[in-house]
Design a protein around this nucleic acid. Structure first.
Lengths: 216, 216
DNA sequence: CCTACCGATCGGTAGG
DNA sequence: CCTACCGATCGGTAGG
């Protein structure tokens, strides 16, 4: 016994051999849980399911996490922060509005659809089963995420690529963006990057494009 | 004891007094269950929760439904068929493509967002917990639903109101349409009809509109 | 991390 | 529909 420390250890603690193992196993749990939550839903998944998927005994996950909710929170927070980091790594000043927007959509769909065996889609539906302070943390991250997209939309419109950049338009766009997790199949005909380009095209509205390059 | 008949009673059975009561109580259960499934998820809701919400004792819902899944199925199927009936009641021949499309979006958002105290949004997320034959039935209805929207999109493009009418574009649109259930609030500033008009505007892409009537 | 265990709850049933 | 009940399972804990 020892771990189960949410508030993380002291500063700069040089990890010893056992610590590394603990961290690895902890991470295995987060991923296995996220995958199961995605497939069967949070309440449809059992701590015993998660233990089995990680080759542990029924009570062992509680060595790493104090509760099932803490395990959900770890997965949701990690995924969301990962998404946000990807997007914030792209410099808006380094490229034109359209290129920036396309880079955002590509980065996000890559993260959403092909990270770690597909655990990230879980965040789209399952965050809502969090409560209290953990829910607040997640909502705060989501607000930063939405503000970033909102800004990108404003730039897009200022450059003449869309007719709207209001919050409602941004919401419609984000629904289409996140809706991909409900129909995307890894073995399907389109890669995440290709889907990204399709969505960018769908979202744009320049006069020139109305003369269809797209039939079918 | 008596009911609990899924395959419905004989043809044209004139309902007696008790039958009416059974039908009413059965319907109360479907609505209460759907509301709870929407709020807490299917697996996060207990048959006892549903019983309590209907002023029954713990075991009584099983007089009307053989299982929890049957109760879910009843709500999902009824909601989906209701949606489909609304849409099929609109005659495409009776109006121009744009008017038809707008009528569809309005009808659907009305059904989705303000029917029976808001039970319908449940179908967006919870149908996936169905299994076997019931799941197949629901997927079949959904295919009809999507085909209808696909046709509407083709008409929209033929009339020059969108640049795309391919299945992917239709999917993006439907995600935005159904995503409304995740942010719509009955006490919010916009009615379902107003949201419908916003979405129609967002989806259109005529050259004339690019000169923004919309700022912000 | 495993073993062994607990109290609570859950879906569902019998019998009227 | 209620009463009374059952077997199974669940989240979680103690103790090493």
């Amino acid at each position: 016994m020892a771990p189960n420390h949410e508030p993380v250890e002291g500063h700069m603690a040089r990890p010893k051999r056992e610590d590394i193992n603990d961290v690895n196993r902890r991470n295995d749990l987060v991923i296995a849980a996220a995958m199961l939550f995605k497939e069967r839903g949070y309440h449809g998944t059992t701590m015993r399911d998660i233990a089995r998927a990680t080759n542990m005994q029924a009570g062992s996950p509680f060595y790493h996490f104090a509760s099932k909710q803490d395990l959900l929170f770890a997965g949701v927070e990690e995924s969301l922060l990962g998404c946000l980091a990807d997007l914030e790594a792209i410099d808006p000043q380094a490229m034109p509005a359209l290129g920036y927007f396309r880079a955002l959509v590509r980065a996000h769909l890559q993260r959403l659809l092909e990270t770690q065996g597909g655990m990230v889609p879980m965040v789209v539906d399952e965050w809502r089963y969090l409560e209290g302070a953990q829910l607040e943390v997640v909502l705060a991250i989501r607000r930063r995420f939405e503000a970033l997209w909102q800004d990108a939309f404003v730039r897009l419109k200022d450059a003449g690529h869309t007719k709207r950049s209001d919050p409602m338009a941004c919401r419609f766009f984000l629904s289409a963006l996140h809706g991909t997790v409900r129909w995307y199949r890894p073995d399907g005909p389109l890669s995440p990057a290709e889907i990204a380009d399709e969505l960018v095209d769908y979202t744009l509205c320049s006069a020139a494009d109305v003369e269809d390059h797209y039939s079918r």
